[in-house]
Design a protein around this nucleic acid. Structure first.
Lengths: 125, 125
DNA sequence: ACTAGTGTATTAGCTTACTGTTACACTATA
DNA sequence: TATAGTGTAACAGTAAGCTAATACACTAGT
């Protein structure tokens, strides 16, 4: 996994796990890989993984069991809320940044549509 | 100005100046505030401002003149390119992140449209 | 009981970003 | 020539993130 050195690794790991849960590769109640395994897989230190996980625990997304492992919560409402939170966060970010550039909502839709068309053409190679 | 502590301040200052140029509050050939003034205005150290500016100089966006000040380039093509680069960067970011969440291009447009409608309603208070 | 696998905590570096300070180089103006 | 305003550079100190290593606590299987 590649990290952006402009933002803390533990934070990017957090986002990564968000993603794995949202796309259901980590299902409710599922056991995460051991922290030491994760550290190897992500080529970071155990403490860095631990920091990310502890924040996820505080958010109620992970339920750790001493001696057993970390498990995704089975509280569906928490997970549904997570998805909404993350998606809306992304939308808010573009909206705000493009608005700062004095781009109107209508133009945003237009730009995104065009951009998607470009990507479609590029993938037709 | 408020900074996000997840990303370096000098980097955010860079983005800020990008924005000021793109929305034409800093016009081609215009003189920037003195580094010491900027430092006060942004409540950061002179060196931090300097680091941001030096990168902008390397990108050909600013033209410093010793003893006089920093000036926005008059090379319009550089500025046009800057705008394209920044806008497309934002579009690429949302696209990629939403795609990672297995959201289709059509859904992206739909979501963004809905989000914009929400914002309109909220501003009608 | 023992052992292996797990989460958790602590400590000691290292590096980078930021601050604070001082100094130097150049320009314009009085 | 003196002074104020500018960019630029260098230094020391602080804080945060990351690494490395060790130790402890708990669980499950042998």
């Amino acid at each position: 996994m590649e990290f952006d050195d402009k933002v803390p690794i533990y934070y990017q790991i957090k986002q990564y796990i968000y993603k794995e849960i949202i796309v259901n590769r980590l299902k409710p109640g599922a056991k995460l890989p051991a922290v030491r395994q994760l550290a190897v897989k992500l080529t970071v230190n155990v403490n860095t993984v631990q920091r990310a996980l502890s924040e996820l625990v505080n958010e109620g997304i992970l339920k750790p069991q001493r001696g057993k492992g970390n498990f995704v919560t089975t509280d569906i409402s928490v997970l549904v809320d997570l998805r909404r939170r993350v998606v809306e966060g992304q939308l808010a970010m573009v909206y705000d940044r493009l608005a700062e550039l004095q781009i109107t909502p209508d133009e945003m839709i237009q730009y995104l549509t065009n951009y998607i068309d470009q990507r479609k053409e590029q993938s037709h190679d």
